[in-house]
Amino acid sequence: MTEEEIYQKLTDLFCKTFKRDGIVVTADTSAADIPEWTSLTYMNLVFEIEQTFGFTVKLKDMMSWQRVGDMVQTINRKVNGN
């Protein structure tokens, strides 16, 4: 899966989880950019990421995610072994 495809899938998941169309997801996107980003929606987002990309998200993964770029790095590693 290319990084571009990961971003595309994440964009879909963000729009679905945060119930808003047109969310632009970039490497620098963080909780501060999305008002709907709460404990509850974040939990849902993690659930969706696990379902979509087929791996279990660890606590240490989430702790390292300061921005979406960090998230993509983890997904890339788990899915592509990069």
Partner: peptide
Amino acid sequence: YGMVKYLYVAQLIQ
């Protein structure tokens, strides 16, 4: 404010 509380607390604890 604006942090995912349970995650931030886990980080603080650890």
